[in-house]
Design a protein around this nucleic acid. Structure first.
Lengths: 250, 250
DNA sequence: CGCGCGAAAAATGTGCACATTTTTTGGAGG
DNA sequence: CCTCCAAAAAATGTGCACATTTTTCGCGCG
């Protein structure tokens, strides 16, 4: 009889302790991506069992990822009540934009001390790219490059802490636009970016900050409250449908 | 007869699913506190079994807390190899100080637009406290109040994102001083804080930033590399001795 | 027709028994 | 005395079986 503590239904060769860090990461990236992409609408409940089913992994795996996202404040975790996509208030998003504005003021202040020809050249090249995307009407590229401009600015300082903070702010604002979707043309006006570079070239801190400030206020002013932002498809399978080819009811 | 799903030996009344969120928090706070306090030296390994034993909780509980601290970048998590107290390089800490410096430049830029009598009064009151602590030689209070001054500045903006970022930076630098311990008198000179308030009162952005910048560079210059910063007591029981009444040697 | 209210169903939280690694240990050989 | 290497010991990672909520559902009553 041996120890009758044997078995459970699954007698596969692979059991516990599989150690597959890539799988965790895949699930994490999938959910994060859906979140950043705006596919997961605000207020949607992320229950563990369905997600485990969709991704074909154990519930523990899902649980770990969900809690990690909660620690990053990308999901709202309520004890005993699971995870939800946070529903940021208008003040929340204003806070994020304002933080970016204040941060960039500091960045520019420091940047005028370090600016050299190489930096100006790099930024100018970026502006060219931005203008090209704008003139050919490539909205997706425009949005991406517009954010990248500010990333370039902070990266020029070479400070990991500041770069990380900015990346965090940007990822947050990208989520929020899906709730309080700005006017369809919420892309940073290239001229304003160009004006910032101009001020930098001239080592004019005050002007650089003034332009940057106006730039942000301009973007912020376009935010508006969207009262009923689509009931959001409560079916998670729709959102992650591309991951696992699974067909189910409706 | 019946389901022969007998299972393990423990048939106590209280088993799984105890649901005690406060206990998690207690362990988290205890470890975080030890980290911030500098009791946990850089490079020390935090193994799960001993911690579970010390705190009298299950290993899973410890595991969860450790991973959470890892997600916050307060511990260095290496797959299959556990958690260690990070050993920041000199560049790392410079990066934190520089980030604070850059951030404060942005904060001051925005602050001169909002400054009013109430704020000046509040800051002045704080300066009085700081000076009092300094004159009576209360080092602990001086360090605390010195950090609090910068917190007051950013809090005056009322921006949650910025406040959180600053708190993060401060908690990080407080950990680092235990590695690269600055000169014994690394406290911010009160005069410099006073000068910042003066510049604010005068609505002089340029001066405020200049003073703040000098202030930080002054502090940064005092950092020095501590080659062999004490072997650090590898015994975790010593560090968390206060939690469980366990005999400690010495 | 709505409104409790209790029971069933579903979801979350936790300890535990392993699987899998990593680290330590104890010699044998150079 | 040092180096290498295999086996033991220790530590980390994971699925699973529950316990404990929370949510949903059904139904009688006002």
């Amino acid at each position: 009889m041996a120890t009758q503590r044997r078995r459970n239904g699954k007698t596969n060769g692979k059991r516990a302790g599989k150690a597959n860090p890539a799988e965790d990461e895949a699930v994490y990236q999938a959910i994060l991506h859906a979140l950043l992409e705006g596919k997961l609408k605000a207020g949607v409940k992320l229950a563990e069992p369905p997600l485990a089913d969709i991704f074909g992994v154990s519930r523990e795996r899902i649980r770990k990822v969900l809690h990690r996202l909660g620690a990053e404040r990308r999901l709202e975790m309520i004890p005993n009540r699971g995870a939800r996509v946070p529903r940021p208030t208008l003040d929340d998003i204003r806070s994020v934009y304002e933080a970016h504005r204040v941060l960039e003021a500091g960045v520019l202040t420091q940047l005028v001390r370090l600016v050299d020809d190489a930096l100006i050249e790099k930024l100018t090249a970026h502006l060219t790219e931005e203008r090209a995307a704008a003139t050919r009407g490539d909205r997706a590229a425009s949005v991406r490059l517009s954010g990248a401009f500010h990333v370039h600015l902070v990266e020029a300082l070479g400070n990991a802490e500041l770069t990380r903070f900015l990346a965090d702010l940007l990822s947050r604002s990208s989520v929020m636009v899906s709730v309080y979707e700005p006017a369809t043309d919420s892309i940073c006006a290239v001229d304003e970016h160009g004006a910032i570079v101009e001020a930098l070239r001239a080592r004019d801190v005050a002007r650089a900050i003034a332009v940057s400030r106006e730039h942000f206020l301009h973007v912020e002013s376009r935010l508006h409250l969207d009262d009923d932002p689509v009931p959001a498809s409560e079916d998670l399978t729709d959102v992650f449908g591309a991951i696992k080819p699974k067909r189910r009811k409706r």
